[in-house]
Design a protein around this nucleic acid. Structure first.
Length: 568
RNA sequence: CGGGGCAUGGCGCAGUCUGGUAGCGCAUCUGCUUUGGGAGCAGAGGGUCGGGAGUUCGAAUCUCCCUGCCCCGACCA
């Protein structure tokens, strides 16, 4: 491809709207342009990257035995009413009406449609198991689209759905997708990690996420330093402390703590360790009452764990100040456990404390020397907190480390969540109708491109991993317009590499060297060849990888072999 | 949804407080010079200042309404 003919505009300055590196570089390198909030056009150079990612996904999905199909973006509301998600899904579901005032949705995902296809097409257990996938545009009306294509409203997703006669077959199909995903992300050249996840809104039992590791990632993931345990922070279990709770030694004492509303204030004021305080959070319960959740002062509540407890409203909702006052007699900041009438869940780490500090349920007062059972009877133990760096791994080996990741894939065993309400049935060996077991498997195709940049860039621009680079080689002739020798060598080289099937971007613009180098680096083409008078005198060309700091010369007449060795 | 901010040529910005009919840098086009790290000079094109209503002799600038976009928050107890 000749750059002089290629429709691309690089920007020297970063557009003000872009906050994260990947978004900034995608705009500057001319990969995408914004149309409206969370809506992006992919320009030719960006599309090349996207298509490379898609190709890897297709090859591996096909290899895993899945069948590609395409379903409509616009889906009738009836299907969503049937599955129950018309009301469950909430405002992220874009609802639209056609000219006859009939309700439709812009598909955020396709469980309903595929289940409808399957219940019509599959009649017999002999047709199972089967896996269908598509690579297609999705629409989710995000509360707050941001970070460019990382969290866009419209995006491209690979979604796959497998159907099985029984749970064992589902587990096998799930395992096959796990392996396919591992191959896909390995082939993209990105550093990633598969982690256990909470299955969230889509439902179901078992699920794992694939994260591209990047310091700027939106999600926290935890893993053991001694084995392969890895989980989303939300899903990571906190083990109860190993040592038994010490015996109570202090008397319960009420101490004045004027103005100390937060654990930080309290710890400073009383000169105690936050880890020796217990904070009491009042949340809404399911039966109109409130529920108290107690965690150690230095720990944070894990909302995903909390909302699963019996009697706690889901989604988790903190009680309003008025509700707190009605339940405890005091205002937020001084809530404590002693004398509370409501149900109390206590995190296992908090339960291991003796003689701790908590609110007194009176303004400007806290209690010291508080002890479970003696002062606070009936607290139910629970895992309520977010794990922290250094916690023992739930796998029993090693300590937990925390890293940041960008979720690019998610696989679920859904079971019969959709097949039962939507009556996706087949006849089993005994001739009996039975509901299908289902798995679903997503990859954020557009997000992978952004994640690749978050993980691979420097101050000059993008550094594409070879497998997804828009071009493999950028050919930079210097003084092309003036030097016949440079022109002849460039034309020869370009033809030779291109004929060999190498994707070459030739910067044949009449621009100064600095401009060409700067653009080549911004675009992030992994391999750069420079053709210049200086080297040609000695029969040499100059090679430099995007990650290198120095160039090195090699004989011009061995260019093809040299490049082949570099490209692997 | 709650809070804050912004909207002026393709991009980045000034001008708004204190009303007088729009400017700078980058990018684009033409010419000459230049050519190993985002060149120089000379010239050119491109904006009804987000939309509407109002105040005024006169509005990018003041007032009101609307829209779009960006950021923060939704884990103080």
């Amino acid at each position: 491809m000749r750059l002089s003919q290629y429709p691309i505009n690089t920007l020297k300055e970063t557009p003000a709207e872009a906050e994260v590196v990947s978004h900034q570089l995608m705009l500057r390198a001319g990969l995408i342009r914004r149309l409206a909030a969370g809506l992006y056009s992919w320009l030719p150079l960006g599309l090349r990257v996207l298509q490379k990612v898609e190709r890897i996904i297709r090859e591996e999905m096909n290899r895993a035995g899945a069948f590609e199909l395409v379903m409509p973006v616009v889906q009738p509301a009836e299907l969503w009413q049937e599955s129950g998600r018309w009301t469950e899904y909430g405002p992220e579901l874009l609802r639209i009406k056609d000219r006859h005032q009939r309700d439709f949705v812009a598909g955020p995902t396709h469980e309903e449609v595929i289940t409808d296809i399957v219940r019509r097409e599959l009649k017999s257990y002999r047709q199972l198991p089967v896996n269908f996938y598509q690579i297609q545009t999705k629409f989710r009306d995000e509360v707050r689209p941001r970070f460019g294509v990382m969290r866009a409203r419209e995006f491209i997703m690979k979604d796959a759905y497998s159907f099985h006669l029984d749970e064992e077959s589902l587990r096998e199909g799930y395992r096959a997708m796990y392996d396919a995903y591992t191959r896909i992300f390995t082939r993209t050249g990105l550093t990633f990690r598969a982690v256990r996840a909470d299955s969230g809104a889509i439902g179901g039992d078992v699920s794992q996420e694939f994260h591209v590791l990047a310091a700027s990632g939106e999600d926290a993931i935890v893993f053991s330093d001694a084995d392969d345990y890895a989980a989303n922070l939300e899903a990571a279990a906190a083990l109860p402390p190993a040592e038994p709770r010490p015996a109570a030694r202090e008397e319960l004492r009420k101490v004045p703590t004027p103005g100390a509303r937060t654990i930080e204030d309290l710890a400073r004021f009383l000169k105690v360790d936050p880890a020796h305080c217990v904070k009491t959070l009042i949340v809404e319960g399911t039966d109109g009452a409130v529920v108290a959740l107690a965690v150690r002062g230095d720990h944070e509540l894990n909302a995903v764990k909390a909302h699963k407890l019996p009697g706690v409203a889901s989604p988790l909702q903190l009680a309003s100040a008025e509700r707190v006052r009605a339940a405890t007699g005091t205002e937020p900041g001084y809530v404590g456990l002693v004398g509370l009438e409501c149900r109390i869940y206590a995190d296992t780490s908090a339960l291991a404390l003796a003689d701790f500090v908590c609110g007194a349920n009176e303004k400007d007062l806290h209690l010291t020397g508080v002890n479970w059972d003696r002062d606070v009877p009936g607290a139910m133990p629970a895992d309520l907190r977010k794990v922290v760096e250094g916690d023992p791994s739930p796998s029993g080996r090693g300590r937990l480390r925390i890293a940041r990741g960008i979720e690019v894939g998610h696989i679920f065993q859904l079971g019969r969540k959709y097949s039962e309400p939507m009556k996706a049935l087949v006849l089993d060996e005994g001739g009996q109708e039975t509901a299908l077991y289902m798995g679903c498997y997503g990859i954020g195709v557009t997000r992978i491109v952004a994640a690749a940049i978050e993980q691979n860039h420097d101050e000059r621009g993008i550094i594409w991993p070879d497998p997804i680079a828009p071009f493999q080689v950028v050919l930079v002739p210097l003084n092309l317009q003036k030097s016949d020798r440079v022109r002849a060598a460039t034309d020869r080289l370009y033809a030779e590499l291109t004929d060999a099937g190498i994707e070459v971007l030739l910067d044949d613009r009449d621009a100064r060297p600095g401009v060409k180098f700067a653009d080549a680096e911004l675009l992030g083409i992994p391999h750069r060849l420079v053709v210049a008078e200086r080297g040609l005198e000695a029969g040499k060309l100059e090679y430099r990888h995007r990650r290198d700091t120095d160039s090195h010369e090699f004989p011009a007449d061995r260019a093809l072999g040299f490049m082949r060795s570099r490209l692997g």
